[in-house]
Simulated scan of single mutants.
Amino acid sequence: MPAIADLGGTDGWGPVHPPAPDEPVFPETWEGRAFALAVLGMGRISGRNLDAFRYALDRLDHHAYFEEGYFGRWLNAVELMLVESGIIAADAVDARAHTLEGTQVEEPPAPEPTKPDYAPTGPGSLREVDTPPRFGVGDRVRVGEVPPAPTKLPRYVSGRVGVVEVVQPGHLLPDTHALFQGENPQHVYTVRFDSRELYGADAEPFAVTVDLFDRYVEKA
């Protein structure tokens, strides 16, 4: 089942409304607080990493992802992470919200924390890869099937053929990093696809570039 955020190449989402040049970063006060809570919960309380946070976003239901706004989505994702880490009970946030609204609800007891035993090997996401890249600029590659979640392979390029345009620096693999199963650094390729390869012979001609991890591609 594709992740809820994997919307590339799909229809029915309406027109894109770019933000105004002078739009504030946080149009509403609660959004700035939500951002701070998400960063705090992700990085300093739950012990989770950025890929784990993205994986939490991918596992939200339709309402939690689409109906509560961008930073509402962040709050929902970090709540999921905190629950899975045993920092808060599953119903603790709802109980406190009801209490603030004037309805006394007994808060469930705090669980035993189960934070992952994890420490990154370096800052950021870039890593050295011991082996040379399998592909170079100009090589034709075919994208494999979408692996089980978590993954950052967009399904609309699965099975398609493109040309390597840039060989990017090595990067830790989000598929395993999100689950704390190792950083597994890999080469990343910027692959250029013809629009007609992706959308059919009747598509208007243009190019789409996608950054793909080494494990996602094979020789065409």
Rank of each mutant, 00 (worst) to 15 (best):
R48Y: 13
R48E: 11
R48N: 12
R48D: 09
R48K: 10
N49R: 13
N49E: 13
N49M: 12
N49Y: 13
N49D: 14
L50S: 10
D51W: 13
D51I: 05
D51H: 13
D51R: 15
D51N: 15
D51V: 03
D51Y: 15
A52Q: 15
A52S: 14
A52F: 11
A52L: 07
A52V: 09
F53V: 10
F53P: 13
F53T: 10
F53L: 15
R54K: 15
R54L: 14
R54S: 14
R54E: 15
R54W: 14
Y55A: 14
Y55K: 07
Y55L: 08
Y55M: 10
A56C: 11
A56D: 15
A56S: 10
A56M: 10
L57A: 04
L57K: 04
L57Y: 00
L57V: 13
L57I: 11
D58M: 06
D58N: 07
D58T: 13
D58I: 11
D58Y: 05
R59L: 12
R59Y: 07
R59T: 04
R59S: 09
R59G: 08
R59D: 09
L60F: 06
L60K: 00
L60C: 02
L60Q: 00
L60G: 02
D61C: 04
H62T: 11
H62W: 14
H62A: 03
H62V: 07
H62I: 06
H62S: 01
H62R: 04
H63T: 13
H63V: 05
H63Y: 06
H63I: 06
H63C: 09
A64K: 13
A64R: 10
A64C: 05
A64H: 08
A64I: 05
A64F: 06
A64M: 07
Y65L: 05
Y65A: 02
F66Y: 10
F66E: 07
F66V: 00
E67T: 03
E67I: 03
E67N: 11
E68C: 11
E68L: 07
E68V: 07
E68F: 08
E68R: 11
E68D: 09
E68S: 07
E68I: 05
G69E: 09
G69C: 05
G69W: 02
G69V: 03
Y70F: 13
Y70E: 12
Y70I: 09
Y70C: 06
Y70A: 10
Y70G: 05
Y70W: 06
F71R: 00
F71S: 01
F71M: 03
G72E: 03
G72Y: 02
G72L: 01
G72M: 02
G72D: 04
G72S: 03
G72R: 01
R73S: 04
R73H: 06
R73E: 08
R73T: 04
R73G: 01
R73I: 01
W74G: 01
W74Y: 08
W74E: 06
W74C: 02
W74K: 06
W74L: 03
L75T: 12
L75E: 13
L75A: 12
L75G: 14
L75W: 06
L75H: 07
L75I: 12
N76I: 03
N76D: 05
N76Y: 11
N76Q: 09
N76V: 06
N76L: 07
A77T: 15
A77F: 02
A77E: 12
A77D: 15
A77P: 15
A77Y: 02
A77Q: 14
A77R: 09
